[in-house]
Design a binder for these strands. Structure first.
Lengths: 338, 338
DNA sequence: TTGTAAGCGTTATCAG
DNA sequence: CTGATAACGCTTACAA
């Protein structure tokens, strides 16, 4: 591999000059040498050694994307299409600005901090649910970071989120407007303050508006996953006291439909369902899933923009909240007058 | 950040000794100093600077996972669950062996080579379809690499593949055994030699075995994607001259089912379908998709094992071919005697 | 059993 | 306009 020294020797100048040309500090270098150096760079296929750069500048141009892995859980990394889309957005944006992407799952805080120090990461994007201690630890160190889909009440923390409450509201209102009154709320565990609890607040708000009481027996918290979702669908099929479901994730909704079908229930004729996310699977279920739309790829790209801007000392908005909208498809029907 | 020098100073030894202890070359160091050094490392939270290591050892412990992006295409990175699962497997395996994962999309060969040189990547895993020139260029450089799901006839090239032909055969035979004779083959573009062409060979072999001719009008090559798949489903619904479909990808199959349903056709009563991959969406369609199963996560992990083994000078098998099996679910029915 | 010193490729400071 | 020189943190002969 050709190094700066090689180029310098070939052209007959000093490494410093080559370095200057590479960085566009071409003001103090004669047009002629610039040309010759650039030529040599091309013909000798010079490529900067990022390790050396990182060492001397203590900045690596690497952004880490971190996923929290609960120790128990198996290899369930970004299995679901949601994380795929997010990563796609992040990679695209980073690539465009000449940054590199390191992907890692993390279990513990020390693990995270080592990663940071080891690689001189320039920035960090966290996706998924982390215990609060993580944010504390991150705040105590200099590397800028950004959370996707977290609800941390700290104006210093960069965050990209969604109108989760609005989404929950839209979904539920849509069901209410279709005449439904007995509407289940299906979600993963409701964390103290987070995406799910926000969506639940939206659910509650819509019910309130229609003077429908929130009933504890209508709330189902289950782990997300195809098997659990279909199982829940079959379980619910036995209940006859509800006509609609709001599921806070498309995978969940799709699984429910599948389970309900297995048990011989018809969607939406007997039971209406609204999902959340508008992943591509929403268009694969039959009936096609009415769901709350969000632009995941765009979310990833914005996250990068914000983080890089903060890294450059800019003051981007601390929190960007993405809009949601209701995608009406086929999984909701008017309640049949029973 | 504490450096080796800091530790050395604190303990009162030389940097060399510290380095030796870190690397477990503890044979020539007194038990006592070892203990004191390790203590200092803990209390001072020493973490090795990977950039420095990479610089001096010209090896980074970074493995690149590369996706080819056709210039035209938009941000369609690892959107589909397939790549997600693959990445999950790769990350898990790398993490376990203390390697780091850099994810990047690549458009051109120079771009790939620069990436390699810039970071001193220790190894490369390529997923997706690359033009042949890519392999040529990679062979001419020292960094070991591995292809997932490619068919390159070069024993020097590490590859992880699937029994694609067998899969195509199993799927098609299953349909034939159910009495079907008019079986469509739906796939993305058939490349000269590749995953799809292999699956097609399996399709052909099964038909041959049952003395059923392969008919050109039964072959559909379309881009993979939800919209095109559902559109194709609607289009096919108009044809009355077939009773079964073998789709070489679950997303395709799911889209077809969806499109067929839209057009009022019933699966599997009127039309049977077999997919390929056994992604989780296979259990979300209704009817649940009969499909050719493969273990994508395991594939990713094995890819890492092979690559690392080759990096260490071992001679792993050049090609590992993963088995497939038929997952019988609900999308295939006996041909109704018409 | 431990230490010295050189060097990896780059950048930054300062001097010519 | 251009060039020495030191420094980033680490490893590795080689010395002691």
């Amino acid at each position: 591999m050709a190094t700066i020294k090689d180029i310098a020797r070939a052209v007959g100048v000093s490494p410093t000059t080559v370095s200057n040309v590479i960085h566009g500090n071409t003001g103090r270098v004669s047009m002629n040498t610039v040309r010759r150096i650039n030529e040599a760079i091309k013909t000798m296929r010079y490529v900067p050694n990022m390790s050396a750069r990182a060492l001397v500048s203590s900045s690596s141009r690497i952004i880490g994307v971190i996923n929290h892995l609960v120790p128990m859980e198996s290899g369930g990394f970004f299995q679901d299409p949601f994380h795929g889309a997010l990563l796609a957005g992040i990679e695209t944006a980073l690539h465009k600005r000449n940054y590199y992407l390191m992907v890692r799952t993390i279990r513990t805080i020390p693990e995270l901090l080592s990663l940071l120090a080891s690689w001189n990461l320039d920035g960090l994007i966290l996706t998924g649910i982390f215990p609060h201690e993580f944010y504390q630890s991150l705040l105590e160190q200099p590397c800028p970071f950004l959370l996707i889909d977290s609800y941390i009440d700290n104006p210093k923390v960069l965050q990209v989120r969604l109108q989760d409450r609005e989404g929950g509201y839209l979904a539920t209102r849509h069901l209410l407007e279709a005449g439904h009154r007995d509407i289940l709320f299906c979600s993963p565990k409701i964390f103290e303050r987070g995406v799910v609890s926000e969506r639940f607040e939206g659910y509650r708000a819509a019910l309130d508006e229609f003077k429908v009481p929130v009933r504890a027996e209508y709330i189902y918290e289950r782990e997300i996953g195809i098997p659990t979702a279909t199982a829940l669908g079959r379980e619910l099929a036995k209940r006859g006291d509800f006509t609609a479901i709001f599921a806070t994730a498309d995978i969940l909704a799709a699984g429910l439909i599948s389970g309900l079908h297995d048990a011989g229930r018809r969607v939406p004729d007997e039971i209406s369902i609204v999902g959340f996310d508008d992943l591509n699977i929403a268009q694969l279920t039959s009936p096609h899933l009415t769901t709350v739309h969000q632009d995941v790829v765009e979310k990833g790209m914005t996250a990068v923009d914000m983080l890089l801007s903060a890294m450059k000392g800019g003051t981007p908005p601390d929190i960007v909240t993405f809009p949601v909208s209701l995608m009406k498809r086929q999984s909701v029907a008017r309640r049949s007058p029973s």
